[in-house]
């Protein structure tokens, strides 16, 4: 999915409406795929931090809370990185 298909070569085979519909579909799919990839990276990282033992097949309340906190704190830290680096330049 990394390379965007070149739709220009399909110019002669697609009507203008179908072409723009396809382009919209492609953009949506790409966006969804990016979000899914981000979810994979975050789940991998947060699962390692939050799930310490496997005693059942479902998440307990502590693990569940930890997982969503993990995501939110990662975004806090992302903001903090930029802020802190900017303060060094001042």
């Amino acid at each position: 999915m990394s390379d965007a298909p070149d739709l220009s070569s399909l110019d002669s085979q697609l009507t203008a409406t179908d072409k723009s519909e396809l382009q919209t579909f492609l953009n949506h799919t790409r966006q969804r795929s990016e979000i899914q990839q981000r979810t994979h990276v975050m789940t991998d990282m947060c699962f390692k931090k939050c799930v310490t033992g496997i005693k059942s097949a479902s998440l307990d309340r502590t693990e569940e809370a930890c997982l969503s906190n993990c995501l939110d704190r990662f975004y806090d830290v992302a903001k903090l990185t930029v802020q802190h680096l900017q303060s060094h330049r001042g």
């Binding site: 979000i35 981000r38 979810t39 994979h40 975050m42 789940t43 947060c46 699962f47 939050c50 799930v51 479902s58 998440l59 693990e63 569940e64 997982l67 969503s68 993990c70 995501l71 939110d72």
Partner: peptide, 11 residues
């Protein structure tokens, strides 16, 4: 389950 939780939090 963790994937779903993280996905919901991210959304």
């Amino acid at each position: 389950a963790a994937w779903n939780t993280v996905s919901a939090a991210l959304m």
